[in-house]
Design a protein around this nucleic acid. Structure first.
Lengths: 213, 213
DNA sequence: GTCTATACGACGATAGAC
DNA sequence: GTCTATCGTCGTATAGAC
């Protein structure tokens, strides 16, 4: 959860260290280009040379900034996206109801960005291989999300169901719905199926019903 | 659903046509090798040259038998596995309860063959790209499975839930559980979560509870 | 019909010049 | 920090031996 990248202020250093080196700006350009291309065409269809060209340098140039190659670049894109979600998902000022509301909003946003959704879906399954560069990343991600939703659902359970099991169920439902939705967007209504599930758990969904688009 | 391959008996032909040509045997060897390698290492990590070597010929040799290349080979592996599942899933002698029981058994078997499960999981997500060789295959697969389970659940619904929505939910749950299970097998009990869901739908699961292994 | 040999272009990656 | 040059491997294609 710690914020990566250079500190905004070099605490106590005598040198008035410049905040962004040329390399940092180039790195940012590369990650921007990678994020856009991955979102549009997925991971496999995009070559390192494509990313490099979009960021206005050669593929060897990008490898200087990201020695881990395409894999490392991918992780940077994922981590950046995660931070956006984490900021809304793990805000401590929210109660259980608010957190579920944020989940609904993330699903609504996902339905508008199929490229990035497809990327996550593909990767989370590729990463089942222990040697995959994103294996521990996704293991940890699911662990955190299961704990998060187990806590939320626990507050709303009232003994009707097991929060831990329900959290596994919820995450599985969301992932599986994405798979079907990506294959047949017209047939699958992810938001409606989520509401069905919450209702099945005995959770009142009326507060989220009347959303338009 | 029609059985491919040469007929067991050349009906009425004057020539006692030999059942398996040399090519057919080679084809089988190649598909065997591909299935094993795909199951072990996934689709992307396996090269056509790997498959060819395992089947004791050159990569150009395999292309003679499978002009569609690696993609076609993949489809042959998938179709062969599907036929095994289809035989038990779509048997018309079974009623709704039996069909659900078969589903439980398939899940139990899957828990013993993570390689093939991982392959299906990866592919079903890769295939969201319309240009992917298996795109229409998986589109159709989910269509069939949704219809299948909608019919089964419809018989057991008694107006408590919408069978179509529940079928989407069921398939999503199974897929999503696989994703989590492949990442953390010790944490996820796919069978138990399926039982939870059926119970949530008001379906009596007692007949499947006392299974050992 | 079955298969080998060989070549092509693109990929991820590395080494070293500037 | 960025480049050019190069490597080995990939999927694919074609020519031709048997």
């Amino acid at each position: 959860m710690a914020s990566p990248g250079p500190d905004r202020v070099a605490s106590g250093s005598p040198i008035p260290a410049k905040r962004y080196t040329k390399g940092d700006r180039t790195k940012e350009r590369i990650v921007d280009a990678a994020a856009e291309l991955f979102s549009k065409s997925g991971y496999l269809a995009v070559s390192l040379r494509d990313i490099a060209a979009a960021a206005k340098l050669t593929h060897a140039g990008t490898l200087h900034h990201f020695p881990g190659g395409k894999d490392e670049l991918l992780m940077r894109v994922l981590e950046r996206r995660d931070q956006v979600d984490a900021d809304v998902l793990f805000d401590e000022h929210f109660d259980a109801w608010d957190h579920l509301g944020q989940l609904v909003r993330i699903i609504e946003r996902n339905a508008r960005t199929p490229g990035l959704v497809a990327l996550y879906a593909k990767l989370s399954n590729e990463a089942s291989d222990p040697d995959h560069p994103a294996h521990t990343y996704f293991r940890r991600r699911y662990e955190i999300l299961r704990d998060h939703f187990a806590g939320i659902l626990g507050e709303l359970a009232d003994g009707r169901f097991d929060p831990g099991a329900a959290a596994q169920h919820l995450l599985a439902l969301l992932d599986g719905l994405q798979t079907q939705w990506l294959l047949a967007p017209d047939v699958i209504d992810m938001r409606a199926r989520l509401m069905d599930f919450l209702a099945l758990l005995g959770i009142d969904t009326s507060r989220w019903e009347p959303t338009s688009g």
